Simulated assay, not measured.
Amino acid sequence: MNKETLLDAIEAKRTELLNVAFKNGLTSPLAIQHSQELDQLLNLYDELHIQTIKKAHVK
Rank of each mutant, 00 (worst) to 15 (best):
N2E: 06
T5Y: 10
K13I: 01
T27H: 09
A12K: 12
I32V: 12
V20E: 10
I53W: 08
V20K: 05
N43T: 11
A9G: 03
N19G: 12
I10L: 04
N19K: 15
L6A: 01
G25H: 04
G25T: 02
D8L: 11
I10S: 02
E16P: 02
Q33V: 06
E37W: 00
Q51W: 05
H57T: 09
Q51K: 15
E11Y: 09
N24E: 15
N43E: 09
L6V: 01
L38A: 06
L18F: 14
A9F: 07
L7W: 06
L44P: 00
L18S: 07
G25A: 08
T5N: 13
N43S: 10
Q51L: 10
T15M: 14
E37G: 00
A56S: 15
T52K: 12
V58A: 12
R14V: 03
N19A: 15
A21E: 04
K59W: 02
H57G: 08
L42D: 01
L18D: 11
E37D: 07
D39L: 07
L18K: 14
Q40E: 11
R14D: 07
D8E: 15
N24L: 15
P29R: 06
H49R: 13
L41G: 01
N2Y: 00
K55G: 01
R14A: 09
Q40G: 11
A56T: 11
K55V: 08
M1R: 01
D46E: 13
L7D: 13
E11T: 09
S28V: 02
K59A: 07
V58G: 00
K54C: 10
Q40S: 14
N2Q: 01
H49I: 05
K59P: 08
A56P: 01
K13D: 01
M1Y: 03
E16G: 06
D46Q: 13
T52R: 12
A56W: 08
K55W: 04
L41Q: 02
D8A: 15
H34K: 15
E37M: 01
N43H: 07
F22I: 08
L38Q: 06
L6E: 06
T27R: 10
R14E: 11
N19S: 15
L48Q: 13
Q36P: 00
L42E: 07
M1S: 04
A21S: 14
L6R: 06
G25P: 04
A56H: 09
G25E: 01
Y45F: 12
I32E: 09
E11N: 13
A21F: 05
T5W: 08
